[in-house]
């Protein structure tokens, strides 16, 4: 299987926004050309551990208090050790669930008053799947 046969977020970025650019006007080179510094890469900005990072889609409204809404895209980094107060993905009843980690009181918190805190099960099978490092909302749908 070759790497180029599927899209990966750590292959070359698909979209690049130029940082500096100028057209050549009447034969004079742009004075900015000497300062050309490539482009800003959103992957580089959002992702520090590409091999350990994956994306997922949110279903539900329990995290609206921290700005995570139904349909949002989450960027999850598995390589980080979860800290108190992190937004994490945990496995609850075999299902991937997004909640806030409260290590001190051993529970998972929603960011919505309608949802009660969930005590972290005592048994060792409980696992944090990764730390949510960003969430992305579209404010306008792209033409499909």
């Amino acid at each position: 299987m070759s790497k180029s046969s599927f899209i990966s977020h750590y292959s070359t970025s698909l979209l690049r926004v130029p940082l500096y650019s100028a057209r050549v006007q009447a034969g004079f080179p742009s004075p900015a050309d000497d300062y050309l510094e490539g482009s800003l890469d959103l992957n580089e900005h959002l992702i520090t551990h590409p091999a350990a990072t994956f994306y997922c889609r949110v279903c539900g409204d329990s995290m609206t208090g921290v700005g995570i809404f139904d349909g949002d895209l989450l960027i999850v980094d598995r390589s980080l050790s979860p800290r108190n107060g992190d937004v994490v993905l945990a496995v609850l009843d075999g299902e991937l669930t997004c909640k806030i980690l409260d290590i001190k009181r051993q529970r998972l918190l929603a960011a919505n008053r309608q949802y009660a805190p969930i005590p972290i099960p005592e048994n060792s099978s409980f696992e944090i799947e990764g730390v949510v490092i960003s969430s992305i909302r579209r404010h306008r749908c792209l033409p499909s």
Binding site: F54, L74, L89
Partner: peptide
């Protein structure tokens, strides 16, 4: 799950 946008995992919130 990791190579097609419409297939990325869904998580409950």
């Amino acid at each position: 799950y990791t190579t097609r946008w419409r297939d990325i995992p869904k998580v409950r919130a």
